[in-house]
Design a binder for these strands. Structure first.
Length: 273
DNA sequence: AGTACGCCCTGGCCGC
DNA sequence: TGCGGCCAGGGCGTAC
């Protein structure tokens, strides 16, 4: 499931290939993947003939900045993939390929999404931030201990807060569990009771876990692949995620698995207080 | 404002 | 072999 490290990996791969290239056409094969206020026709017409001046990431969203006032945005949901397709090989689309970006030099990007939880849309760059409505970027320089302290002044359970995209952008279920283990913080703890030392541990863990996962090129427990169809490696380094019942790497206590807001949640009941 | 829950959706897995 | 039932969960909408 593409979270920040996976989308960052895809972004870096696609940037090398299509930055500066001109879009010939955007074909939307499954119109329902276009949500918000734009129609499939609108997405195609606003992207056609535009050059991709930059590819960025905001939280879990992938942004194609066009040489127009617009940005073409993909959210990958649970099973979304953005696959670069070599212009020299035949087009390999299947029933899960919902959008195709064709470039003038015959390169293409295929948006595949088995479970159709992803979406594509276009918006003007000047209203991008208010459209996305996301919180702070956890790998930005201005994500300091102080800004973390500001967003954690809430009675929400700390795990729910970490996954709240309006508070911090890009963290999903896997990395929330891993970050909280690394920080030694219990997932059900109300955010606002965290002490200064715990906030320091949390701040440090957010940076170290996300950067470690980016270095692994993401986490492939299911459908995730990078822009070139390659798997990530972070799944080999899970501390707690999907390790319910297995011994904690630090203290051998069995990792606990509970349900939290309908999601699975893994933690060490001994290391995380 | 927070939380709980249903919805969207499909492949994979389990039990019979 | 096949089929029903359940599970995974990001983000959104709704009810409390």
């Amino acid at each position: 499931m593409p979270e920040l490290p996976e989308v960052e990996t895809i972004k870096r791969g696609l940037r090398k290939k299509v930055k500066g290239k001109k879009i010939k056409a955007v074909k939307v094969l499954l119109p329902k993947m276009v949500r918000r206020n734009a129609s499939a026709k609108e997405v195609s017409s606003r992207a056609r003939g535009k050059k991709v001046v930059e590819i960025k990431r905001r939280g879990k969203a992938l942004l194609f900045i066009l040489d127009s006032p617009d940005v073409l945005i993909f959210r990958l949901g649970m099973t979304g993939q953005m696959l670069w397709s070599n212009p020299l090989s035949p087009l390999r689309k299947d029933k899960y390929t919902h959008v195709i970006i064709n470039f003038e030099n015959s390169e293409r990007i295929l948006f595949r999404d088995i479970r159709q939880f992803g979406e594509v849309f276009v918006t003007a760059e000047c209203v991008l931030e208010e459209t996305l409505n996301m919180g702070i970027e956890p790998l930005d320089k201005d994500f300091t201990r102080k800004t973390l302290a500001q967003v954690t002044s809430s009675p929400m359970k700390i795990k729910n807060l970490l996954m709240d995209q309006k508070k911090i952008a890009g963290i999903g279920n896997i990395y929330a569990d891993e970050i909280l283990f690394e920080a030694g913080i219990h997932p059900l703890k109300p955010a606002c009771v965290l002490k200064s030392k715990e906030l320091g541990m949390l701040h440090r863990a957010i940076g170290s876990i996300l950067n470690e996962a980016i270095a692994c090129k993401g986490d492939t427990i299911g459908q995730y692949r990078d822009a070139f169809g390659e798997r990530g490696q972070y799944q080999n380094y899970h501390r707690v995620y999907q390790r319910g019942g297995d011994p904690c790497h630090r203290c051998n206590t069995p990792v606990k698995r509970i349900k939290l807001s309908g999601r699975s949640c893994h933690f060490c009941p001994s290391c995380q207080k």
